[in-house]
């Protein structure tokens, strides 16, 4: 950020920029596309979210007029939207720690001398990541169904697709897909630790569990924080898996997650309210991952 002010304050005293054309050639394609498909849509979403529909009398022609933050008042009064936010927050509080806990456990086991056949396990655990969310949800939808599942003995007695459990059935799909991916990120950062660090601990008689807890986990913290942030972002954006589950379960409503609410609202069509939902959701995502990042950094400093 400091450079911003320097550039503005002393532009002329700087050396002449060399290779201007090459720099433009390298930067412009991305710059133009980023502006068109990131910056302008963000600006447009904010603009659209401030429009309200007005009519002249009951039967007058509908007109979009600028209404500042009126839409946002509606957002805050919208019950289904906040219920969907609450639902994914509950989902995230349970699913993210379970998923990352498993990923960390597997990464530590792979990095320990306790496990043989590491190459096989690494691949086997990672394969689900190659399955798109839609396909994974279709597969598990069949596996959970009371008639088609190969485990009918279980699925006939436990209603995985009912109102009580369907959220956790979806959590299972997300966990199944992403554990291996997160495991690999943590594992590759474990591999980057020089082995000499462990030797002193081993000479002092520390076992694998102790080494993992006191040395390895603190050293791979950045990787865990990164995977946690990606997971938090992913949770708030949940869409494909619950949308697919609607075919298997009537308990999944069309406002089950915030993004489904956005889609349902846009199809009404109420573009302004949907845009306001999108803006609130993007801000919430940003604030949540930013807070988490700051929180973990401060804990690290202590």
């Amino acid at each position: 950020m400091t450079t911003t002010s320097t550039v503005a304050a002393v532009p002329r005293r700087r050396r002449v920029v060399q290779h201007k054309r090459a720099i433009a050639f390298f930067i412009l394609p991305f710059g133009v596309l980023f502006t068109l498909f990131y910056l302008i849509p963000i600006g447009y979403a904010i603009y659209q979210s401030m429009l309200v529909v007005e009519r002249d009398g009951t039967f007058g022609e509908a007109q979009e007029v600028f209404g500042w933050f009126q839409q946002y008042v509606l957002v805050f009064q919208n019950g289904p939207f906040w219920r969907s936010v609450g639902r994914v927050l509950l989902f995230g509080i349970v699913q993210v720690p379970v998923m990352l806990g498993l990923a960390l456990l597997f990464a530590l086991l792979l990095d320990s001398p306790l496990v043989r056949g590491k190459k096989f396990f690494r691949l086997a655990f990672f394969v689900p990541y190659a399955v798109p969310g839609v396909i994974a949800a279709i597969m598990w939808g069949f596996l959970f169904s009371p008639n088609l599942s190969p485990f009918t003995a279980v699925t006939k007695n436990i209603d995985f697709l009912g109102a009580d459990l369907v959220l956790w059935s979806i959590a299972n799909v997300v966990t199944w897909v992403f554990v291996g991916y997160n495991m690999l990120i943590i594992y590759s950062s474990l591999l980057a630790i020089p082995t000499e660090i462990y030797e002193a601990a081993r000479l002092d008689g520390a076992g694998q569990a102790r080494i993992a807890w006191s040395i390895k986990i603190p050293l791979v913290r950045p990787a865990i924080v990164l995977t946690a942030i990606f997971s938090i972002i992913g949770t708030l954006q949940l869409l494909a898996e619950p949308q697919v589950f609607r075919s298997f379960s009537s308990a999944v409503t069309n406002t089950f997650t915030p993004n489904m609410t956005v889609y349902a609202t846009a199809s009404v069509p109420n573009a302004s309210l949907a845009a306001a939902f999108s803006v609130v959701l993007a801000l919430a995502t940003f604030i949540l991952s930013f807070t988490f990042l700051k929180f973990t950094q401060r804990k690290e400093a202590e």
Binding site: A45, Q48, L236, A282
Partner: peptide, 14 residues
């Protein structure tokens, strides 16, 4: 940090 799904709707409108 901008979630791709937040862009889908404004992209559609544009």
């Amino acid at each position: 940090l901008v979630p791709a799904t937040a862009l889908a709707l404004p992209l559609f409108l544009l």
